[in-house]
Design a protein around this nucleic acid. Structure first.
Lengths: 334, 334
DNA sequence: CTGAAAGCGCTTACAG
DNA sequence: CTGAAAGCGCTTACAG
């Protein structure tokens, strides 16, 4: 491996001078610059980012922790992040937590040791306990670099920038649309309400019902954990009710899948029940399937998160920014 | 930020000694170890991986370049990679090429500057030109670390380890299954044959036809580029043929989507035409849709690729390993 | 058991 | 315009 020293020696100059041409300093003689450039070409030399960063006390990598790398939702988000990071020459160190908080912590530890410039973070789901919360907080602080939280808000972390979705409004709009087209028995398959996400969605659902004088009926409320399996079980319960709902709100894409799985298994006709889901499931577009959804550009969420992080890095003292994405309803069969 | 020097000073020992306890060296007095450990705790000190790596002339990160981060296919692969890398304490620097070879090159350049320990690489699709090929080869070599190629073989790169899929066999089996259930007019929606992937799949398809004495009919062969859009256009042509095929082989998941889009748009009944696709599309499982697929565990492909890379790093001189994943047919409606 | 010194591959005042 | 020297935060012979 050829280093700056090798080039310097061969060119009969100091490392300082080579460093200058590497960094496009103007104060180097045109002839020596020429000579050095040629040698760099000749040996196909590139400076070590590691060494440079260490010397400059800088970092050129940002960390990303997401819960499900193989969920296209997060894939798109990641694409948004990568696209903007690439533009500014930053490199992405990526971790998949699998929704396990232990993995979150582990990733945080490694990221810290790598001295990242900043973090984009979608937390694992289970930070309900006080102890875990303060632990996470401690880890995040010890990172000593800015973090922007995406999609899943942490109520005990009110000092970080964030990009979130207007879950309350989304659930409200969806429920309202169902009501307006005549539905009264509307179920919701959500997650346990210790998560902000779930709470907000629940709130929107209930508010819409109340405002239209429809009783909020516990038997139509199903709280799982946003996994397909749990949603499948709950959906079976839901679809086996004496008095079946005529519509259902599925609160994330895994939940939607679980719902459809149950529906197929029980053998319920597609026309019998209307579904509105959080987030589109692309493959379903190409079929006449009774599926409506709440749309949001996850790609933009990723981009926005990256932008926020860059802003924060540039200007550490700016007031906290919380960016809220607006929902859009896509209604096809209702 | 607290460094090894700070700890050393506070403990009245040398950096060497601190380094020793950091690295669990046995030759340090129990008392001083105790003292140092306490200080490390107290200051919540962690050593800088960057500095350590520079000093040891090592690297703890591997690079990954994939073409479509938001395609669940690659998401799963990435999960496989990350899972095993995490176990061995390696960190993943990830790039999304968007199937653009310029981005491949750019990523390669950055990876090189970061002195990665190894690379797992699924090339962008368009390395057909000689010039591009030798350029890529040069870049890969200048990386000066092992690379394992995944899913898309590069014929001009026969010295790298790889994890591939038995595309020929998969297409053969699928076509054969169709023939055996009575189909004779079988279309294929593939990609241009300058790609190995496409060529292999084409070969399997044609071989099955020939072995069963069915004419290979050009009008049933459609070569696109594995994007949904192109596949959609080709599918329209296909489905508008005078003499429609009764079955079709769609050669990747995007292609399958394009096919179904066209089918819906033209208004062809689900029962009119049988489809076998490369790779499952999960959401379709939950509906009675006329879809069969060729299954492979992409997660395992990722894991396998990671394993190969680790092996190669440990033992640079072992003979080249090429691992071939076997296809499995999942037939539901045929 | 411990430490001084040199080194990893860079950059950056500082002096000339 | 150029370079010697010190430094970034670590590790590693080497000597004691």
């Amino acid at each position: 491996m050829v280093t700056i020293g090798d080039i310097a020696k061969e060119a009969n100059v100091s490392k300082t001078t080579v460093s200058r041409v590497l960094n496009n300093s103007s104060l180097v003689d045109e002839n020596t610059r020429q000579k050095i450039t040629e040698l760099i070409e000749k040996y196909n030399y590139v400076p070590s980012t590691i060494a440079r960063n260490l010397s400059k006390r800088e970092s050129s990598t940002i960390g990303v922790i997401i819960p499900e790398i193989d969920n296209p939702f997060f894939g798109e988000m990641l694409r948004g992040i990568m696209d903007t990071m690439e533009q500014v020459g930053l490199t992405v160190m990526c971790f998949n937590s699998g929704d396990k908080k232990e993995k979150d912590m582990k990733a945080l530890a490694i990221l810290r040791q790598n001295g990242i410039k900043g973090l984009i973070y979608t937390p694992a789901i289970d930070y309900s306990g006080n102890e875990e919360q303060s632990m996470l907080k401690k880890w995040l602080q010890s990172l000593d670099s800015p973090v922007v939280v995406v999609d899943r808000e942490l109520e005990f972390l009110q000092n970080a920038d964030g990009v979130f979705f207007d879950n309350e409004l989304a659930a409200y709009k969806a429920t309202e649309a169902l009501i307006q087209s005549g539905h009264k028995k509307i179920a919701i398959i959500n997650a346990e309400l210790d998560r902000i996400l779930a709470r907000e969605r629940q709130r929107g659902y209930e508010r819409a019902l109340k405002e239209h004088n429809i009783e909020v009926n516990d038997k139509y409320i199903f709280l799982g954990d946003y996994t397909e399996n749990k949603a499948y079980q709950l959906s079976k319960q839901c679809l086996n009710l004496e008095e079946k709902p005529t519509a259902v709100l599925t609160c994330n894409n895994n939940t939607t899948m679980g719902f459809f799985r149950a529906k197929k298994e029980i053998g319920i006709e597609d026309s019998e029940i209307v579904c509105i889901g959080f987030d589109n499931i692309k493959a379903l577009e190409f079929f006449d399937i009774n599926f409506n959804y709440i749309e949001r550009s996850v790609y933009s969420m990723g981009k926005k998160a990256a932008d926020l992080l860059l802003q924060r890095i540039k200007n550490p003292d700016q007031p906290r920014i919380k960016y809220i994405i607006e929902p859009k309803l896509v209604i096809k069969h209702i």
